[in-house]
Design a protein around this nucleic acid. Structure first.
Length: 287
DNA sequence: CGGTTGCCCTGGGGGC
DNA sequence: TGCCCCCAGGGCAACC
């Protein structure tokens, strides 16, 4: 369930292996994940040097240097490889030793440093795309995205304005990537719990002190998850390891019926369905 | 136009 | 025991 913190953890895990390295082999074992892979993907990527590994919302962005001739003259444009992990996607890093791929390891590529990265995605909700770097900011997936939750410009004033007049629930509004980019179902539940705000509250009524509390909770929940992911980075960098985020202990997410960790109301954590997705919360503590 | 619903996909778990 | 149904997740198109 990779949301922003998990994607950021993956970014930090693969960046040292990729930045400055050259892709010397690229294999796609099928032509699509959730969407078709770009045409001639392997040919377009092989031989390219990686300039940087970035993240925007839940997307990994791998900047590729323009292809060059043997004498170093550019023969094309810089491009950015876009990876979305969907719900079951993982990037496994290991030595390029020719080990046979597992059944769900759909894509593998190797660098001139002897490292291989495999994209494993059993449910194939992931996306891999490639586009010219100068087309990135106008791309319809990225242009409408709201601010990064951990950026300074995401503050109480911004949130209040982004929610002003909205009649949908605050839970649904937090999942709207156009208002705020990178928060998913788990961290929306956790942040609302920490802020003491009911997921059923009308979004437009989150103002003033409530908005400030919610902003602080979102930043804190995400930052703590990133810190926890960093400590378990070893686990997913090794091909045999389980993804670190499956071991997180949530306060309310997926804890229906357990005692509320924030108060002694005795009612326990409730599960409701909003917009077709599960919401977990404490009806006493969250108003 | 804001808001909601359904679809994409498949492993796994629960229920019968 | 075995089978079927449904759920989980994010993003987007279609719809009201």
């Amino acid at each position: 369930m990779p949301e922003l913190p998990e994607v950021e953890t993956v970014r930090r895990g693969i960046a040292p292996h990729l930045e400055g390295a050259r892709i010397i082999r690229f294999e796609a074992r099928r032509a699509d994940l959730r969407t078709p892979l770009p045409r001639h993907l392997a040919a377009r990527v092989t031989g390219r040097r990686v300039l940087a590994v970035r993240r925007r919302a839940k997307y990994l962005l791998i900047d590729l240097e323009a292809p060059r001739t043997g004498k170093g003259a550019p023969t094309g444009a810089p491009e950015v490889m876009i990876i979305h992990l969907g719900m079951s996607g993982r990037l496994l890093v290991g030595p390029d030793n020719g080990a046979p791929p597992g059944p769900h390891e759909h894509i593998a590529f190797a660098t001139d440093r002897g490292t291989e990265i495999r994209f494993s995605d059993p449910r194939r909700f992931g996306v891999l795309d490639l586009l010219p770097s100068d087309a990135f900011s106008a791309d319809k997936r990225f242009a409408p995205l709201g601010p990064e939750p951990l950026a300074p410009e995401f503050d109480a004033a911004y949130l209040e304005q982004a929610l002003a007049g909205s009649r949908t629930t605050i839970k649904a509004a937090l999942l709207d990537q156009h208002r705020l980019a990178g928060v998913g179902n788990i961290y929306a539940c956790e942040a609302l719990f920490q802020a003491g705000i009911s997921p059923r509250r009308q979004a437009g009524t989150v103002r003033g002190e409530r908005a400030a509390r919610l902003v602080a909770a979102i930043k804190d929940v995400l930052a703590r998850a990133i810190a926890a992911g960093g400590s378990s980075a070893r686990d997913y960098v090794q091909a045999s390891g389980e993804a670190g985020w499956f071991q997180h202990a949530w306060a309310v997410y997926d804890r229906e019926g357990t005692p509320c960790p924030g108060c002694d109301c005795g009612r326990g954590v409730r599960r409701i369905v909003q917009g077709g997705r599960s919401t977990f919360y404490c009806a006493s503590r969250q108003r």
